[in-house]
Amino acid sequence: MTETHASMTVDRTGAVAQVTVTGPGKGNAMGPDFWRELPLVFDALDADPEVRAVVVAASGRNFSYGLDLAAMSGVLGSLFSGEAGLAGPRTGFLENLKMMQRSISAVADCRKPVVAAVQGRCIGGGVDLISACDIRFASADASFSVREVKVGIVADLGSLQRLPAIIGDGHLRELAMTGKDVDAARAERIGLVNEVFADAEAVLAAAHACAAEIAANPPLVVQGIKAVLEDERADRVAGGLRYVGAWNSAFMASEDLGEAVTAVLSRREPVFRGR
């Protein structure tokens, strides 16, 4: 049976559930519906005693283009207003950001192990999402980018906090400071993904095979393993999310941010001036 939401679907087959991101933005870009629905879906899966593992997938050719800038203009809009320097707009931005952080954290906090199956492009918020998963597989055509620097933003939804334990500090600094694309082969070399498969069909099958193998083990023991592993980094991740939220609320409003968003919407290269 398929449970349909505005931005995702949920299918339960035996002990494994599949959450499929479906848009509605181009390239499964993450708009208001995604941020509202993600924690509701994962809270329900966490509470479902029949579900022992979860696969996160995406429809279409690409996993996700990340934050839907046009659809989320209401969240960023206060930072472009003439009152952007006042406490009210900055506080409003921070509250919206905390909501989005909690959405991604709902995936990490789910007691059931989560396996990501990535095909095509996985950008910005897409990397935040898979960073919150326990295991990541990719198709050979997948590419990954911590792209926020390109749009005048310090990545603030979990990549900077969760990726050090996954790919190491040096690789993360390179990805976050350049905003470059890395292909599936390099993603596997640096540990961002566990294994690479030929195509989208193969990677989804591999993710389900892994989830089924996990689901066949004693569920409380599996959940205990995840709880112990998460405990080691929980305080560091939570502290990092608080800090980046405060930092972006204080410093993100800039001419460079406005230039970045305008350039993206106009499909041209931005010119940053450090103002």
Rank of each mutant, 00 (worst) to 15 (best):
E188A: 15
A263Y: 05
A205H: 05
G179E: 09
A106I: 11
Q18K: 09
T20H: 01
L94R: 13
A215D: 05
A87S: 12
F34E: 02
E148Y: 07
S78C: 04
M177I: 08
R275N: 12
D134K: 01
R162N: 08
R275L: 12
A117F: 05
I130L: 13
F93N: 11
S159G: 04
V222H: 07
R267L: 11
K150G: 07
R136I: 13
L94K: 08
V237I: 15
R268G: 06
K26G: 00
A185M: 07
E195H: 11
R275T: 03
V107L: 09
V182S: 01
S266P: 02
T20A: 08
Q18I: 05
T22P: 04
E259K: 12
V115F: 05
D43E: 15
A250L: 11
T178S: 15
R186H: 12
F80T: 09
A117C: 08
M30Q: 15
T2G: 03
G179D: 09
E148D: 15
R275Y: 02
S139G: 14
T22D: 09
V221P: 00
E201G: 11
M30E: 12
A209D: 10
P24G: 09
A17C: 08
I123N: 08
L94W: 00
S143A: 13
F251E: 03
E3K: 13
G240T: 04
L45I: 14
R12V: 15
M100F: 03
K150M: 07
T20D: 02
H5M: 09
V114T: 15
G92A: 13
F272L: 15
A106G: 10
A58F: 09
I130N: 04
L40P: 02
A138T: 01
A206H: 09
F93R: 05
E195G: 04
A108N: 11
A165W: 11
V21A: 07
M8C: 07
A209W: 01
A211K: 12
H171A: 15
E83Y: 01
A29S: 14
A117N: 02
K112P: 00
A132M: 07
N217F: 01
D199T: 02
G239P: 03
E201S: 15
R111Y: 00
A238Q: 12
L67Y: 03
E95P: 00
T4H: 08
A198G: 06
E3H: 09
Q119S: 15
E232P: 01
R136V: 15
M99F: 10
E195Q: 14
R12M: 03
G126Q: 08
M1W: 01
P219V: 14
T91M: 05
G152V: 11
P219T: 07
A211R: 10
T262A: 13
G191A: 08
A117D: 06
D231I: 02
W35K: 03
K98H: 12
C210I: 02
E232K: 14
T2R: 14
P32R: 03
M99D: 13
A176L: 01
S145W: 10
H171W: 00
A44S: 13
M72I: 02
A15F: 13
G14I: 13
G27Q: 03
L175S: 06
P39C: 07
R233H: 13
A211S: 09
D46P: 03
L192A: 02
D231F: 05
I130Y: 05
D181F: 11
D43P: 02
